[in-house]
């Protein structure tokens, strides 16, 4: 079964949008990320995959500069993560849709547009991009779960970020919406936006150019969906992931640098 991701993976991209070097994060007393190193090429759709609690959100938060890190370095679009000017160019969509429930879709998107100096027309475009034009005057809390999270996405799209970090954007969406959203991510990437999309659903991996597999705070592997099928010896990405975990549990410690994105 040929997948879209396998074809797209062949594309050669030179510049690096995001580079993480030997990142360690400790929250409380618990190590959440241990020695994570990864690179994300410009214009790619990179899937950040792993079970719940594997450190996906913490890694995303570290990259957008809101997570205190213990050691290591993160370079985003050529600048250290957390640099003030990056807040203009990096978009972040949190896992729990963070929009104002008591405002209308339009008011929400216009607010984030105004912060980034974007026009009302751009706000309208972002709303139609996520398919909410007809609901623009409705308050966010009156929308369904899927619509609600698309408001959150529109608030990020309106800022036209060069790098967009999305934390589990497809969770709780029906299959049609999920497909729509992935098509939209592909479109954004064609236009030069780099996307890092986290998910705990392995099927979603097929939509990505490359994958970062996290497990228990460590980077298990960085590979393409095709390579995952190969190494995991299964066409089913979920099974392939499980196989990969079993095979790497033995030689866990030195597998972190494996496979270039």
């Amino acid at each position: 079964m040929p997948s879209a991701g396998a074809h797209r993976a062949g594309r050669i991209v030179s510049a690096t949008a995001l580079s993480v070097q030997n990142l360690h994060v400790v929250r409380g007393k618990k190590p959440v990320l241990q020695d994570v190193s990864a690179t994300v090429p410009t214009g790619a759709v990179v899937g950040l995959l792993g079970p719940s609690g594997s450190g996906k959100t913490t890694l995303l938060r570290a990259c957008v500069g809101v997570q205190r890190i213990s050691s290591g370095s993160i370079t985003v679009l050529g600048l250290p993560a957390g640099t003030a000017s990056l807040r203009e160019t990096v978009g972040y969509v949190t896992q729990a849709a963070s929009v104002y429930k008591d405002l209308t879709v339009e008011e929400n998107v216009r607010y984030f547009a105004a912060i980034h100096g974007r026009s009302r027309i751009e706000a309208t475009t972002a709303i139609s991009d996520v398919g909410l034009s007809k609901l623009a005057k409705r308050t966010a809390q009156s929308l369904s779960g899927g619509q609600f999270s698309r408001v959150s996405l529109a608030c990020a799209l309106v800022t036209a970020p060069r790098l967009l970090m999305l934390d589990e954007p497809t969770v709780g969406l029906d299959p049609v919406l999920r497909a729509d959203l992935w098509a939209q991510f592909a479109q954004l990437s064609t236009n030069g936006t780099t996307l890092v999309v986290s998910s705990h659903v392995m099927e979603e991996a097929s939509h990505c150019d490359s994958l970062l597999l996290l497990r228990a705070g460590r980077l298990l592997a960085a590979l393409t969906p095709g390579q995952l099928r190969e190494r995991g010896q299964s066409e089913d990405l979920e099974l392939a992931f499980l196989h990969l975990i079993q095979s790497t549990d033995v030689e866990f410690t030195d597998s972190a640098q494996d496979g270039a994105a």
């Binding site: 809101v66 807040r87 963070s98 929009v99 104002y100 912060i115 980034h116 800022t159």
Partner: peptide, 13 residues
């Protein structure tokens, strides 16, 4: 608590 503050703090505001 709604997460909008954290989001705002990732914007230029």
């Amino acid at each position: 608590t709604s997460g909008t503050l954290e989001r705002l703090l990732t914007t230029p505001i």
